[in-house]
């Protein structure tokens, strides 16, 4: 059936089964491949997007449950002031290794900093612990979050 979504501020429609995860609607139907497939089971965070600003694992979010919530992906998050700051910090500290997890990391970090502009180390760990990085670029990712928060210099 046809679903109408707001993705990065634009209205988009997708004619798919209601159980189709948002991740595959974004990647295959709408051609937004920024959100990544890592596990398909809410175990890695590579597919993280925002629904009304809150982080969600798109791989286990059926399209039928998105409803009227606004979807923001890595392609659109830079339009928010916090998202732009996070993306800039990521580049300045050279956070990525292979880069595959980074879209999900940035989405989780942006949600964190939007809710808590000056997070503690423990708050960073708690907010980011669902995002795996196989390359283990964790130290740079953490630094990038602190740079974006203005807690440390790049």
């Amino acid at each position: 059936m046809a679903f109408t979504l707001t993705v990065n501020g634009q209205t988009r429609t997708a004619d798919v089964d209601g159980d189709t995860p948002l991740l595959w609607v974004l990647r295959d139907t709408l051609g937004l491949v920024g959100a990544k497939f890592g596990c398909g089971a809410a175990l890695c965070g590579a597919c993280t997007v925002h629904l009304d600003g809150a982080p969600a694992r798109a791989c286990v979010t059926p399209i039928s449950r998105v409803g009227t919530r606004a979807v923001t992906t890595i392609e659109g998050v830079g339009k928010t002031p916090v998202g732009a700051k996070v993306q800039a910090a990521w580049q300045a500290v050279d956070a990525p290794q292979c880069g595959y997890c980074q879209a999900g990391q940035i989405m989780s970090a942006t949600a964190l900093l939007t809710a808590k502009p000056k997070p503690t180390d423990a708050e960073i760990d708690a907010a980011m612990n669902g995002n795996l990085c196989r390359c283990a670029a964790y130290l740079r990712i953490k630094k990038a979050i602190k740079v974006a928060a203005g807690l440390v210099e790049a």
């Binding site: 937004l32 491949v33 920024g34 830079g78 993306q87 990521w90 880069g99």
Partner: peptide, 29 residues
């Protein structure tokens, strides 16, 4: 000297880069 990776902008903005991001006209999955 410290040099960030040349693909960083594409990575942080979600540009297609990886094998899994490949899309071709008429492509099936």
């Amino acid at each position: 000297k410290f040099h960030p990776q040349s693909d960083n902008l594409a990575i942080v903005t979600g540009e297609p880069l990886f094998g899994i991001d490949t899309r071709l006209p008429g492509m099936l999955y």
